[in-house]
Design a protein around this nucleic acid. Structure first.
Length: 243
DNA sequence: AGTCATGTTGACGA
DNA sequence: CTCGTCAACATGAC
């Protein structure tokens, strides 16, 4: 379900509840959910794939992992992990991780690591990449403390766009190419967001889950790459391997 | 019907 | 102690 852009869509969809009081709370989340009863939501925030419900003094962190879903003003048959009722509607989360972060949320997150945050700092990402020269770029891109919000789809599309083989070592990739990858990670994420809203995301995939290179027409290779062993789709003809 | 996937954490052993 | 590996979680698309 979620990479960073999908979580931004979630945030947009629930803004109608920001500032509202929770008039009933239920669910099977492993936290003291009654604590949310009658509390007013100060704001919704996101840090990459983390969805944050901020209250006075604490924050509920929701991570949808691979299969998490949510419904607004609708319910499923299965019991919700967390269900919030407001005077103007309801918000239900299923099969997700729910945790509580105590105190000031700014102490938990470096907002400038989030590739879709208005304060995203690409120079910081480049510095962080400089510290992991022996990692494969496919792993480094998925590192949430360097590219918060970047997921496997974005990884594959960015590397394809930049002509970089996923198993390239970070320290061997020319600096200009590193800059391009860093910039493209944010650019592609916002295109992902735009296409996802129009329900036409998959139509625009050039590498992820694709069989053939649209540039040279050769078959794409599918391989579980790097320490993270996530699926990579790439063209060994068009994407350069730096090792 | 079995396989696989937009993800992360924690346990365990070398 | 640290590293790598693996299980666990859990749903829906094909």
């Amino acid at each position: 379900m979620p990479e960073g852009p999908s979580i931004l869509i979630l945030k947009e969809e629930v803004e109608q509840f920001s500032g509202h009081k929770i008039i009933a709370v239920s669910g099977n989340a492993a936290i003291d959910i009654q604590r949310l009863q009658d509390k007013k939501i100060e704001s919704f925030k996101t840090w990459g794939k983390h969805f944050l419900i901020c209250f006075d003094g604490f924050t509920v962190k929701i991570h949808l992992l691979m299969f998490g879903t949510y419904l607004i003003n609708e319910r499923k048959e299965t019991p919700p992990r967390l269900s919030l009722l407001f005077s103007n509607g309801e918000l239900n989360f299923y099969t997700c991780s729910v945790k509580i972060l105590e105190g000031d949320i700014d102490l938990y997150y470096e907002w400038d690591e989030d590739i879709m945050n208005e304060n995203w700092n690409p120079e910081k990402a480049k510095r962080s990449l400089g510290k992991v020269p022996n990692e494969m770029i496919c792993d480094a891109l998925l590192n949430q403390n360097i590219f918060s919000g970047l997921g496997n789809i974005i990884k594959n599309e960015v590397l394809y766009r930049c002509y970089i083989h996923p198993e390239s070592l970070v320290g061997k990739i020319p600096k200009a190419k590193i800059d391009e990858i860093v910039d493209e990670s944010s650019i592609y994420s916002f295109e992902f967001l735009k296409w996802k809203k129009k329900f036409e995301l998959k139509k625009h995939w050039q590498a992820h889950s694709q069989n053939r290179c649209v540039r040279c027409d050769l078959p794409l290779l599918k391989k579980y790459t790097g320490k993270k062993k996530r699926r990579s789709f790439f063209c060994t003809n068009c994407q350069n391997l730096y090792e």
